[in-house]
């Protein structure tokens, strides 16, 4: 029996018409329904391109050389249109200004369902539902320009949710928000995953957040997946983290730094609470004169 996956990417290669070289170079990725995956990697590593392949924008809108295949909810993206795929995979981008197309909150939320040709009462039912999830109750008739950055991004997510996708792809959705907006949107995303069971594939630079909520972190560089695993597995590999020059949680970086200096840190902490335990013990040992140097101490 074949296992059921929300997303299957198989040996995917892609080159934009204008690009010299392949931007994706043999990507393989399987995501289970309800999984929370965070993709990380330096700019230009191909992570946004990968995201575009998940709802068919690549190769239907952005054209180029496409090899391999992408299957979402059992549908091969090559065989289905972007509008069909949109009811399976919702996608939200970085800039909230760039994806809001109407004048008021309610128009924005009805835009997608209207285009699907849904009956009026169904559209209304869906709007009531997503307004609640996005915490925009009472703001239905507000002009979209009057919303804060975080509210705009919550609205962008809500308008995608109105199409009832089971998979949500988020491309750095908080990177242009202030801390309050970031919190609002992050909470919404976590809730959609934990309470509503949506599959989340998020591209995000915020390591502390990924470490806390992701089921799996995927690290990309130069069009390939370099490593993946649970957050504690990924961040316990300083070599991988440093190779692509990305920031681990500060408490993990502290462990790398101490290991470099010859101290033994057995389990690399990724969250603050783990770090407090780990470093309390370490300092206890030091204060009792019991610390052991690593074998490879220089």
């Amino acid at each position: 029996m074949k296992e059921n996956y929300a997303v299957v990417v198989e040996d995917l290669w892609f080159k934009y018409v204008a690009s010299k070289d392949y931007v994706l170079r043999g990507v393989n990725l399987k995501v289970k329904p309800g999984e929370f995956v965070v993709i990380m990697g330096p700019s230009g590593c191909g992570k946004s391109t990968l995201a575009y392949t998940l709802n068919g924008i690549i190769p239907h809108v952005f054209k180029g050389e496409f090899k391999g295949k992408v299957i979402v909810n059992g549908l091969n993206t090559l065989e289905h249109t972007v509008s069909e795929l949109a009811t399976h995979v919702g996608m939200v981008f970085q800039n909230p200004e760039a994806q809001i197309v109407t004048m008021t909150v309610i128009e924005e939320l009805s835009f997608g369902p209207e285009n699907l040709g849904l009956p009026r009462d169904e559209i209304e039912r869906r709007i009531r539902e997503v307004v609640k999830v996005a915490r925009l109750e009472g703001k239905e008739y507000r002009p979209t320009v009057s919303l804060s950055g975080g509210e705009k991004q919550a609205l962008a997510i809500a308008s995608v949710l109105a199409l009832r996708p089971s998979i949500l792809v988020l491309d750095e959705v908080t990177s242009m928000l202030d801390p309050i907006g970031t919190e609002l949107v992050s909470e919404m995303v976590v809730k959609l995953n934990k309470e509503y069971g949506l599959t989340i594939i998020a591209i995000d630079h915020r390591v502390e957040w990924a470490a806390e909520y992701a089921d799996r972190i995927v690290i990309m560089d130069e069009g390939q997946i370099l490593g993946e695993g649970k957050p504690e597995e990924v961040f316990s590999s300083p070599d991988l983290v440093r190779k692509i020059g990305f920031r681990a949680p500060q408490v993990s970086e502290l462990a790398y730094e101490l290991i470099d200096r010859g101290l033994s840190v057995k389990k690399i902490p990724i969250s603050l609470s783990e770090a407090v335990e780990t470093y309390s013990k370490l300092i206890d040992m030091i204060m009792k004169g019991e610390w052991r140097p690593l074998k490879n101490e220089k």
Binding site: P179, E208, P249, Q250, L254, L272, A275, Y279, S280, I283
Partner: peptide, 15 residues
């Protein structure tokens, strides 16, 4: 102002 100290500072405060 809804801001938080850096994680490493939070660690130092708790220790």
């Amino acid at each position: 102002s809804s801001l938080k100290p850096p994680q490493i500072t939070l660690l130092s405060i708790e220790l």
